[in-house]
Amino acid sequence: MHDKTFRASMRTLTVLLALLVAFAAAPAALAEEGGYPNVNVNVHDKASLQRGARLFMNYCVGCHSLKYMRYSQMAEGLGLTEQQVMDNLNFTGVKFGEPIVSAMPEADAEKWLGKAPPDLSLEVSARGADWVAAYLKSFYLDPSTASGWNNTVFPNVAMPFPLWQLQGEQVAVMSPPANGEPATIKELKLAQPGSMTPAQYDRAVRDLTAFLTYVSSPDELVRSSMGAWVVLYLVFFTLFALVLKKEYWKDVH
């Protein structure tokens, strides 16, 4: 009889664990669905986050804010001292405890670019890391737009490509128009190399995306390591409950 109890419990556990695996697999499967290549960011790689932050402060903060992130919080998350952040990463000239807000007034930005650059604090939560990385790799020269740049991931984007010196200049290769339909872009080709090789640029994009992933959910830095302990504790709790239950149920026939 105890054997039966045990087997039934194990069956339950297996069913529930199968559900659990399905749950864990679902996000991964959906990530594929977006159709953008996986960037594989690692928010636990502090050096990568620091490089990403440096890129952001050099190339993006002129237009984009991270208004939900303070310099002081960023220092903690990136493992940097106040001195290091104030010397190397704070170009907006505000105090250490202030949020990361672009110096460009929104009205001016809208006038110059046609569109106000959105706050990027939650960009990765909203679009996904893969989208952001693909976006940063998909700018190409297009004389028909106001800025001279276009983007295959975000057509007719109002943002001029800030990283062109690094990646170089891409142009669109069109596929020949097939039976009456308009020509489509087949691929992007690097017409003018930048200061980085494609591999180096990929890494830079991964760093920048990792940084933005961290900014979107800073809790990710502590969450998974804490989660391992919580789950371990709960496994022991469950085993203990199971033993106790079996002991009490001995007299049920």
Binding site: L13, L16, L19, L20, P27, L30, G227, V231, T238, Y248
Partner: peptide
């Protein structure tokens, strides 16, 4: 005590599932 203890086992398994979601994939892919 019979079903309070049995339910406690269910609670344990259920909390493990919840903890995995909360700590490892809180948005469950959107």
């Amino acid at each position: 005590p019979y079903y309070t203890l049995k339910d406690l086992v269910g609670v344990g398994v259920f909390l493990i599932i919840c903890a995995v979601i909360i700590f490892f994939a809180p948005s469950v892919g959107g």
